[in-house]
């Protein structure tokens, strides 16, 4: 029999769960041959939070995202998704976790044998078998409209621009309504207007679906708009993490130079 005490405890646990980080990275180390890329990095993101990851080119931002979705294995350290350790997990074990994650690659990585619409439909065909063909078609159109790509459904990836590819890649990443969004420079190569639209979309998703996002970006303006928290990386580590104002107030030379 559940006593009032049990119920209260349960509720407390649920509350605690809600505040617990969705993605928690601890003491991550990754080297390629002799080159140390990540050097004991730790960071975390909670539900409804957007973390912007900043840093110079080649500091390992893309490597960090690839590790979080398990495409590469770290040399040491821990990565927990919703509390579950994924380091060392085999391909099959990662499947269920990855269905809850959306990933945008730095170069978009669209399937070049499929059209734009088929690219976005691909995850739906695979994991939403219960959807009818017309439902899927509607969903694809809606996703592409959200990123401003409603006009080019039947074009091939080789026939669209880099910025357009990025937007299609984002639509594909959003197809399964993920809980966790990992975006590698979503607004790189976009004009200010399109970039603003993507920022608005990310903000909307964060508000409406309480999505947890990690967004790698070089665009300080965009980072300031979308992120609750920013993390600045250098030499394989987080130099500073906090709100934009925290970063602006910092006395660290590297941070000052970076924000200049």
């Amino acid at each position: 029999m559940a006593t009032a005490y049990d119920i209260a405890m349960e509720q407390a646990e649920i509350k605690q769960d809600g505040g617990a980080p969705v993605v928690a990275v601890e003491n991550l180390q990754k080297a390629f041959e002799t080159q140390k890329v990540l050097n004991g990095m730790s960071l975390s993101v909670s539900r409804g939070e957007t973390l912007a990851v900043l840093g110079r080119s080649g500091t390992g931002k893309s490597v960090l995202l690839r590790l979080i979705i398990g495409l590469d294995q770290p040399d040491s350290g821990s990565i927990r998704i919703n509390g579950q350790e994924i380091v060392g997990l085999a391909l099959d074990g990662m499947g269920e976790i990855r269905k809850k994650m959306g990933f945008l690659f730095q170069q978009a990585a669209l399937y070049d044998s499929l059209t734009i619409a088929q690219n976005v439909a691909f995850p739906l065909e695979r994991h939403r078998g219960e959807m009818s063909r017309s439902e899927r078609g509607d969903r694809v159109e809606q996703l592409l409209a959200e990123v401003g790509m409603e006009g080019d459904l039947d074009k091939m990836p080789s026939d669209i621009s880099g910025g357009m590819k990025k937007r299609v890649g984002l639509a594909r990443a959003l197809a399964l309504e993920p809980e966790i969004l990992l975006l590698d420079e979503p607004t790189a190569g976009l004009d200010p207007i399109s970039s603003g639209e993507i920022d608005d979309l990310i903000l909307k998703l964060q508000r409406e679906r309480q999505m947890a996002s990690i967004v790698v970006t070089h665009d300080l303006h965009s980072a300031r708009t979308i992120a609750n928290r920013l993390a600045l990386l250098d030499q394989g580590n987080v130099v500073i993490a906090g709100s934009f104002e925290d970063l602006e107030r910092s006395e660290i030379k590297f941070v000052k130079e970076f924000l200049k």
């Binding site: 269920e96 990855r98 994650m101 690659f105 070049d112 691909f122």
Partner: peptide, 19 residues
């Protein structure tokens, strides 16, 4: 060419076994 343009990684990232 799928591998070097990360398309195989993209398949894996969408929870599909590329093998």
């Amino acid at each position: 060419s799928m591998k070097v343009t990360e398309q195989i990684d993209a398949i894996e990232a969408s929870a599909i076994n590329p093998y």
